[in-house]
Amino acid sequence: MKKKRWYDYLWMASAVYLTLGLFNILFAWLGLICFIVPLMIALIGGSKAYCNNYCGRGQLFELLGGRIGLSRKKNPATFLRSAWFRYGFLTFFMTMFFLMIDSTYLVFAGADLKQAVTLLWVFKLPWQWAHTAMVSPWIAQFAFGFYGVMLTSTMLGILTMILFKPRSWCVYCPMGTMTQGICKLKNRKEAASNGRKSQKNCGVA
């Protein structure tokens, strides 16, 4: 058995995050870490170390589907693995994300706060118990929107974990697709510039 490292327990952080949001929606802001860190690692380091080691959500699906045995462990449907679906879902996800940012801006500009969490981009769950009086309405609006995004992706992840293999969500997870795309682009650029350098060294260019 491999020795466990501190980051093998980050699934706990994911579980705590989802639970905290039920009690106080403002904790949803912490989820930005799961957006910013993988992007930074991919943009600066050119790697998917976040997915490979530090993603609590991936670990949570692995635990629920693997050790706890909730997954059927079947190969995901072929369409889920296709490039058009992965990049199409990323585009759709990012569009909905920017619409959520737009609603936050509207509240910042004076529109009324909507105390609801939207699940699967359609179903609006009333969330009247949230205590948001201590912050500006736009801060609360972002929290409602972002928690909806996190709950929606968790629900889809759990569904595909049950139907297919534990980490099937990772096949079409927008963060995974985006960071792999960034790494591929970065590698292509580096390879091209190394190629140009070696051509110069050979006196070709």
Partner: peptide, 20 residues
């Protein structure tokens, strides 16, 4: 998709993710 699911179970540490 470079997710790294294969890294954990490998008993020989034979898999790595190449540049993400």
């Amino acid at each position: 998709v470079a997710c790294g699911s294969c890294l954990k179970g490998c008993p020989r540490n034979a898999v790595a993710i190449y540049k993400g």
